[in-house]
Amino acid sequence: MQSVQISSEYIKLDQFLKLADCISTGGMAKALIQDGAVKVNGEAELRRGRKLYNGDVVEVEDAGAFQVVRSEEA
């Protein structure tokens, strides 16, 4: 599992997918999420705006698992 650092309290799922280099555009994030290829904490997630917090785990089909890590500098 890869850790992806954020500097704020939370990050939206579509932004997180770009930060984790799973996709390169917002449109790709929308398609990936609508196809059911993304799970948050083990459950399928269909909302692009889902807020992710420190410790959440995002699984992306064909890309792997990523954990949200809030940096201490925030």
Score class of each variant (00 low, 15 high):
62 D>T: 07
11 I>M: 11
63 A>W: 11
10 Y>M: 00
31 A>E: 15
2 Q>I: 00
69 V>R: 03
16 F>L: 08
6 I>F: 03
24 S>F: 02
7 S>T: 05
5 Q>C: 04
12 K>A: 14
70 R>S: 07
15 Q>K: 11
55 G>E: 12
64 G>I: 05
56 D>S: 07
16 F>V: 01
35 D>N: 12
2 Q>L: 01
56 D>T: 01
20 A>F: 01
58 V>K: 05
60 V>N: 07
40 V>N: 11
60 V>W: 08
22 C>V: 14
25 T>A: 14
68 V>P: 03
21 D>K: 08
29 A>W: 08
48 R>E: 15
62 D>I: 00
36 G>C: 04
26 G>K: 04
31 A>Q: 15
42 G>F: 07
71 S>A: 10
62 D>R: 06
48 R>V: 12
52 L>N: 09
48 R>L: 15
69 V>S: 00
16 F>I: 01
49 G>C: 15
45 E>K: 06
38 V>S: 05
53 Y>P: 02
16 F>A: 05
4 V>R: 10
21 D>S: 13
69 V>H: 01
60 V>A: 08
4 V>F: 02
72 E>M: 10
27 G>C: 12
34 Q>C: 00
23 I>V: 15
54 N>D: 15
23 I>F: 05
13 L>H: 05
65 A>I: 03
74 A>N: 12
43 E>F: 02
3 S>A: 12
54 N>K: 05
11 I>S: 07
55 G>F: 01
1 M>I: 02
33 I>E: 09
6 I>R: 02
17 L>T: 09
25 T>F: 12
39 K>S: 08
39 K>L: 04
35 D>W: 00
6 I>Y: 02
48 R>K: 15
40 V>R: 01
44 A>T: 15
38 V>C: 06
64 G>D: 12
34 Q>V: 00
74 A>F: 07
57 V>A: 08
53 Y>A: 15
50 R>V: 13
10 Y>D: 10
62 D>Y: 00
6 I>T: 04
33 I>F: 05
52 L>E: 06
14 D>T: 00
21 D>Q: 05
58 V>S: 04
24 S>G: 15
68 V>N: 05
7 S>C: 00
1 M>C: 09
9 E>D: 14
66 F>G: 10
32 L>Q: 06
1 M>E: 12
12 K>E: 15
29 A>R: 07
72 E>R: 10
39 K>V: 01
41 N>Y: 04
27 G>V: 11
60 V>I: 13
68 V>W: 03
5 Q>M: 09
30 K>S: 13
71 S>C: 04
47 R>Q: 11
40 V>F: 04
41 N>L: 07
20 A>N: 03
53 Y>D: 14
20 A>D: 04
32 L>Y: 03
47 R>K: 12
35 D>Y: 00
30 K>G: 07
37 A>L: 10
18 K>Q: 13
67 Q>Y: 03
20 A>Q: 06
72 E>A: 09
22 C>S: 04
73 E>C: 03
69 V>Q: 03
65 A>Y: 06
47 R>H: 11
11 I>A: 11
59 E>K: 06
74 A>Y: 13
18 K>G: 05
71 S>Y: 03
42 G>D: 14
30 K>R: 13
33 I>S: 12
62 D>S: 12
19 L>K: 08
50 R>C: 13
10 Y>F: 10
2 Q>H: 02
46 L>H: 09
9 E>S: 05
40 V>L: 05
26 G>F: 09
74 A>Q: 14
